[in-house]
Amino acid sequence: MPSAIEVSGLVKRFPRGVLALDGVSFDVERGTVFGLLGPNGAGKTTVVRILTTILRPDEGGAKVLGRDVVREPELVRSLFGLAGQYAAVDENLTGRENLRMVGRLNHLPRPVVATRSKELLDQFELTDAADRTLKTYSGGMRRRLDLAAALVARPEVLFLDEPTTGLDPPARIGLWGVIEGLVETGTTVLLTTQYLEEADRLASRVAVVDHGRVIAEGTPAALKADLGATVLEVGLSDADTAARAAQLLESVSAKRPRVLGNDVELPADGGAAVATDALRALDRAGIVPLRFSLREPSLDDVFLTLTGHAAEERTAASSAPSSAPSSTARERS
């Protein structure tokens, strides 16, 4: 069976020589969730805008359910749903009116639109708010409605552009549950996110994007195993002690510790076992840590491993090639 989404060699230049995409390729199997993971400005949204026919690529191509996004944009538009961080819903309309509008614009018959709207309002727990204008909705409710709007025409492919960015943790977790429910019904989902945790929870495959390129691809488990193990964080009283501690900890894990001010971070594949060894080593040297904790790997850890720089410090790392754009406002200029 062909892939639901095929992306090959996408290049997109924006005015002033900004290279937003520098040869992005990936395939998404039918009925799976594919995560595009990367920091702000990595090019994730640009990929989605090309796949949804909003932008044309300068080079390369893409197909959605076998249809070419450049040559058959009209047809492609009838195949997918799009929801995202900008929650493109109409504030002056009620929830139900928003869904009806999108249903009508999908040219579904009126009775279908009415029943479908009702169904979706129920499914997304918006029935009580259905006839209130969106001005009264919370951020989480708007995102749910945005997602509902994307599903009115029962698309086989769904694009979710940073669906939980800016949401508070309970709203985020609620939306994750909704997305997981969709996947069980066989919808193919392309998800962009800045959160490793989100990709890990929802996606069966992940591509890490940086500077308009895919720099790693695989299952979340494989990526985490390769790139971002659990991290042991040790807080110490001063920088000298931190340097001494780092030296001691070199023998504890297969990976090298790094010193960040008064703290030491140690990638710890072995998790708790490494922590125990580390604590023993420090104790023998008479070092008493102020803090001592294990944390799950973050996007920063993955980026550090892959690129040698943290996700947020991209402009500071001026050794980047001159073709690489500055990291701000590049996806939506």
């Binding site: 195949l79 129920d122 499914q123 698309p155 066989g186 919808t187």
Partner: peptide
């Protein structure tokens, strides 16, 4: 049926 399930009406529609 489940609300999110793709259905026949999702087939390509162009004028």
């Amino acid at each position: 049926m489940i609300a999110g399930a793709p259905a026949p009406e999702s087939a390509a529609r162009v004028p």
